[in-house]
Design a protein around this nucleic acid. Structure first.
Lengths: 94, 94
DNA sequence: TAAACTAGTTTATAATATAAACCAAATTTA
DNA sequence: TAAATTTGGTTTATATTATAAACTAGTTTA
């Protein structure tokens, strides 16, 4: 039967975040916001969910005097993403 | 930027239904239920949504004395599914 | 003829996503 | 230098969506 898709990744915005993070070393909140065109609130919530799941690591610091949130994907996150893609291919018969 | 994924297809059960229907001429409600392992209620609701969108055609008849619901994907449905797959590939960089 | 089964639909509830409102600090501008 | 604006977010409220539970209508079986 069809595999159960990871519900944490089967969300448009979270998938976009993970997809962006998988190909870079790290990315800033503002960069993710620009790329995804999400609102800050939505982005903040989804980042927290991915962080809680251990899929990404979030570091809060400052760029000069301005707060700066930086994210990077974890090993667990990469594995989850790859599994999601694999499972999805079964659905789509790719 | 990333394409907006068709929200009607970006649902696990609806995607499974469409994926099953795309490779067959038609399928019965019971077959879809077996394959997706969904509850009747959930399946019924999602079929109606796909029908309302014009992605599938639903025919209600009888097999002997027992009611039988048969579904088949429409041209519009095939197109939407193919577009979804294409858009998704951008996310996943496939 | 009562219980259990088939094939669903409707409705209520839970989960999720999203938007709006808010906050603190820094910066610009009048 | 005080007020307004911007930056970089978080929190909270609301809308949307998914799911499960309850129900309907008829059939088969014991």
């Amino acid at each position: 039967m069809l595999k159960k898709l990871d519900p944490l990744l089967h969300s448009e915005l979270r998938l976009a975040i993970m997809s962006l993070l998988i190909s870079v070393e790290k990315a800033e909140f503002t960069y993710l916001k620009e790329q995804t065109e999400a609102t800050s609130g939505n982005l903040s919530v989804q980042i927290t969910k991915l962080e809680d799941a251990g899929y990404i690591f979030v570091k809060k610091g400052f760029k000069g005097k301005i707060p700066q949130t930086t994210c990077n994907i974890t090993k667990k996150g990469v594995e989850a993403f790859e599994k999601y893609v694999k499972d999805l291919k079964e659905y789509l018969k790719l």
